[in-house]
Amino acid sequence: MLLGKVFSKPEKTKMYYRKIISEINSLGINSMWIVVIISLFVGAVITIQTDYNIENPLLPRYLIGVSVRDMLFLEFSSTMVALILAGKVGSSISSELGTMRITEQIDALEIMGINSASYLILPKIIAAMFFFPFLTTLSALVGISGGYLVALLTNITTPQEYIFGIQYVFYPFYYTYSLKKMIVFAFIITSVSAYHGYYAEGSSLEVGKSSTRAVVQSCIFILMFNLILTKLILQ
């Protein structure tokens, strides 16, 4: 029912356009730093762990680069980044809408004759579905750079071997698979969180609880849809 209200015709397209730009900034651009930091360290750690697990001297060292690339594209930059964003963006959406609900700001919009669900939630969904795939790309690039730094600063593998591995038998399909998953996850994060915030009731304590529920449910849905999408797309 809420989604029905959300996807109804906007009152004034110009205002929605402005709101989408502002949401891209608050949900997307403001999340770049956390994605960069986590991806950099995870890329570095995957490099070290892959080296640790390649014990056979017959296996070529460039496999480290291959593993880092595939792990990032197939799982980390979409699913793990989505779980991180569910925590950061999901709680922010839920608490923002919840606070607006209990301080009667949503009622104020309704009384003005504005479809509050559409005006508040649709720009968030559009902004996230548009911008989160960029975060996936950024995460993969920064993660690979993290691995490169390890190759450069340690004797685990040489930078040349690492770069060769990154380029070795690359399927662009892995990248599009990752982007497709992230678009679905973006929808899940924003819609589930918005639902919990929009229907929050009572006091600030309840807003906190709905925020927690939003994050937990978003994470569960992300993991469920990760399995479903992987099955559908990869097999």
């Binding site: 606070t99 301080t103 009667e104 700001q105 003005m112 004759g113």
Partner: peptide
């Protein structure tokens, strides 16, 4: 609703 103005208990200004 365009003809209605409302003052809420906590003013309900957009933060």
């Amino acid at each position: 609703r365009k003809e209605i103005g409302m003052l809420f208990q906590g003013a309900a200004l957009f933060d």
